[in-house]
């Protein structure tokens, strides 16, 4: 383990994180300010959906983010399980709650959008259904970390859960699409027919803002996880001395 520990080098990570933290926060705030200004003020209201179309600027990037964070989590888990890289285990652990919040945000704004669009808060649309399942996968992953006391054991088991979920996600997505097409919903699809640049640009800025938000929060909670780990270690040492 000694070699791997040097390779992982949490100390170097902490130093780096400390240096970039302020910058990351600043970039995130600016991106959100610009993005929200464009999407809430500048972008034109949709001729069909009216002002409600603006929910999309919060909804779509959240959905993209939710998927991206799961990819980060699965990748970290794979690195953790293959290379026994302790920082990778913590990276997966730290990503999960952020991903869950993104997913929840996507579901919640989807429901808000659904009310004026479909006349009901929830419709079993293929996209919403897949995201609901994704949300459950996040919850299961986090529950595993909570349920297992031993850190190394929890990391291994959680990684297995994340990877199995990653293999299943495309299958789940595919099956939900099939199910949806079979039941031929009379609702309109969530995606607009063609995206105009006045909508696309704020959308991309918002997507970038979400990415930086994730990066900032992820590094910050990684720092917190590392500190938690150190505290446990010190407690164990103290217990041994008594």
């Amino acid at each position: 383990m000694a070699k791997i520990e040097k390779f992982a080098n949490p100390t170097r990570f902490l130093r780096l994180q400390e240096k970039v933290q302020l910058w990351l926060v600043a970039i995130t705030v600016i991106l959100f300010a610009v993005g929200l200004y464009y999407s809430l003020v500048k972008a034109p209201a949709d001729y069909q959906q009216g002002e409600t179309v603006r929910i999309m600027f919060v909804h779509v990037p959240a959905a993209w983010g939710a998927t991206m964070v799961y990819a980060v989590m699965a990748l970290s888990s794979a690195i953790g399980i293959i290379f026994r890289h302790p920082l990778a285990d913590l990276s997966a652990k730290a990503a999960a709650p952020i991903g869950a919040v993104f997913t929840f945000l996507a579901l919640f704004t989807g429901a808000l959008w659904g009310k004026p669009m479909w006349g009901t808060y929830w419709v079993w649309d293929a996209r919403l259904t897949s995201f609901f399942v994704l949300f459950l996968l996040y919850l299961g992953y986090m529950a595993i970390w909570q349920a297992i006391d031993d850190h190394h054991r929890a990391a291994r088991i959680a990684a297995i859960v994340a990877l199995v979920g990653a293999i299943n996600l495309p299958i789940i997505k595919f099956s939900v699409d099939w199910w949806n097409s079979l039941h031929q919903p009379s609702i309109m699809s969530m995606k607009g027919s063609s995206v105009h640049s006045s909508i696309l640009i704020p959308l991309l800025i918002m997507a970038l803002a979400y990415s930086f938000l994730f990066l900032t929060l992820h590094l910050l909670s990684l720092r917190a996880e590392l500190r938690k780990h150190k505290i446990r270690q010190l407690q164990m040492q103290a217990a041994k001395r008594v």
């Binding site: 949490p10 100390t11 780990h229």
Partner: peptide, 8 residues
Amino acid sequence: DHGMYDDA
């Protein structure tokens, strides 16, 4: 004991 950190 040594975990992820050195005492340094």
